[in-house]
Design a protein around this nucleic acid. Structure first.
Length: 422
RNA sequence: GGAGAGAUGGCCGAGUAGGCCGAAGGCGCUCGCCUGCUAAGCGAGUAUACUGGGAAACCGGUAUCGAGGGUUCGAAUCCCUCUCUCUCCGCCA
């Protein structure tokens, strides 16, 4: 959420910057509503000031019969106030409606672009494997090794659900533990295990609601939602809090399953394990001072990259352009891992700086000293990494001519010493 | 699921025959004084949001005692609804 006052005073500039996102954002509604609201607010508050003053006078009059005139007068003032209160309530709601659906302003370093083809490749790491045979897609490898069972996943639930079996299940679990140990041990993140379903306030705090409800699974009869990413519960840990400056930056990591409806991606990635309604992810979340957030973003990106480096998976870093960054983000780097079967890089992590956009929605502030005014923190997060896609990358990149798959050395301790699958 | 108790400022904790309560007191914190160090002591200050004025320092208004409604000239105090916490019983991984 943008600051209403800032928006009011910089309406044109903000409009221009938001336009680079591609989708038209109209600020007219906000402007008009904001003006009306302040008008009503002012009349209302001055009437309340009168009422407070006169009521105070009435309280000092012993003989209330002498106050009847003023009491009658105030009765009318109160009527008027009540009506203005109602108007104000609906105007507030309307204004919030505008503010909650206006996306974040892209950072000045976010490349301006019209579509994802304008994203900018920053760097590459690793060597793309050369195969002496035709590399298979991961779903064939997984089925041949009997570690990924798509048919039974669909039987148990439906399309885009998969049953992991035996070494597949173990590999998934090993990756989770490997990532968490790396981030808590070497990168100094604090591990969290949050609830996998959250309430509406939490979803609004990080920006999934009110605009993107159709992407979420909601529980029938309860206003709870299955989390689409650990970003939601972990960022909301400090919703409504004032943190101590001395404690910043806070770094949290969390494993959670993620649940997404994937509405609007019906034709995409229909085969395999790339796009599921439920998938595992290890997430990195930071809360920091505004001045530090862009430095912290680079560090966060490095922390996520380290996972791929230790696993020996080739990847590249892409800086998303204004047309491709998410609703809440000011700047985003994607990490894309090499997938031989698709002969291309595919997203495996997305690292974003939200600046104070989420912090303002969720009211997450800090006080530099005990006397200082509270300021909004900056929030960041990134996948570290998407576990299912990491498993896919391992199957495809480390597949052998005989159909087996080599397990990365770093992962072997987590696999009971196993060196290959099959 | 059944029965009861409670939710006040950073924390603890007063306040329930409605008015002078943004809210006593204590702790904590900040600044100053004092004591040759430490401890103690003394004085002052110490919420947030919105909004009007001002270049700013700052000054004014309104709101906030879990949340939302209601009664009233006026509500932390009365009424209703909801949420959460705690205790006991039942059930359960």
């Amino acid at each position: 959420m943008l600051d209403a006052r800032y928006l009011r005073e910089n309406l044109d500039t903000v409009g221009t910057r938001l336009a680079t996102r591609g989708s038209a954002v109209s600020l007219e509604g906000f402007k008009e509503c904001d003006a009306r609201r302040r008008e009503v607010l002012q009349e209302n508050e001055s009437l309340k000031a009168v009422r407070n003053r006169v009521s105070e006078e009435i309280s000092r009059i012993r003989d209330k019969s002498l106050a009847q005139g003023r009491i009658a007068e105030m009765r009318e003032v109160s009527q008027r106030i009540k009506s203005l209160d109602d108007q104000l309530r609906s105007l507030d709601e309307e204004l919030q409606g505008y503010l909650l659906t206006i996306p974040n302003i892209p950072h000045e370093t976010t490349p301006v672009g019209a579509s994802e083809s304008d994203n900018v490749e920053i760097r590459k790491w690793g060597v793309v494997p050369a195969f002496s045979f035709d590399p298979k897609p991961h779903w064939e490898i997984g089925e041949a090794l009997d570690i990924l069972d798509f048919e039974r996943g669909a039987k148990l639930t439906g399309a885009r659900f998969t049953l992991c079996k035996d070494a597949g299940a173990k590999l998934e679990r090993a990756l989770i533990n490997f990532m968490l140990d790396l981030h808590t041990g070497r990168h100094n993140y604090v591990e969290m295990l949050p609830p996998f379903m959250v309430n509406r306030d939490s979803m609004t705090g990080t920006g999934q609601l009110p605009k993107f409800e159709e992407d979420l699974f909601r529980l029938d009869g309860l206003d709870y939602f299955l989390i689409p990413t650990a970003e939601v519960p972990v960022t909301n840990i400090h919703r409504g809090e004032i943190l101590r400056g001395a404690d910043l930056p806070l770094r949290y990591t969390a494993y959670t399953p993620c649940f997404r409806k994937e509405a609007g991606s019906y034709g995409k990635d229909t085969r395999g394990y790339i796009r599921q309604h439920q998938f595992n992810k290890v997430e990195l979340v930071k809360f920091c001072r505004p001045d530090d957030s862009y430095r912290e973003l680079e560090l966060l990106l490095n922390d996520a990259e380290t996972v791929l480096q230790l696993l020996g998976l080739p990847y590249r870093i892409v800086e998303l352009c204004t047309a491709d960054i998410g609703f809440s983000a000011a700047k985003t780097y994607d990490i894309e891992v090499w997938l031989p079967s698709q002969n291309t890089y595919r997203e495996i992590s997305s690292c974003s700086n939200f600046e104070d956009f989420q912090a303002r929605r969720a009211s997450i502030r800090f006080r530099e000293t005990d006397k200082a005014k509270p300021e909004f923190v900056h929030t960041l997060n990134g996948s570290g990494l998407a576990v299912g896609r990491t498993l896919v990358a391992i199957l495809e990149n480390f597949q052998q001519a005989d159909g087996t798959v080599l397990i990365p050395v770093a992962l072997r301790p987590y696999m009971g010493g196993m060196e290959k699958i099959g």
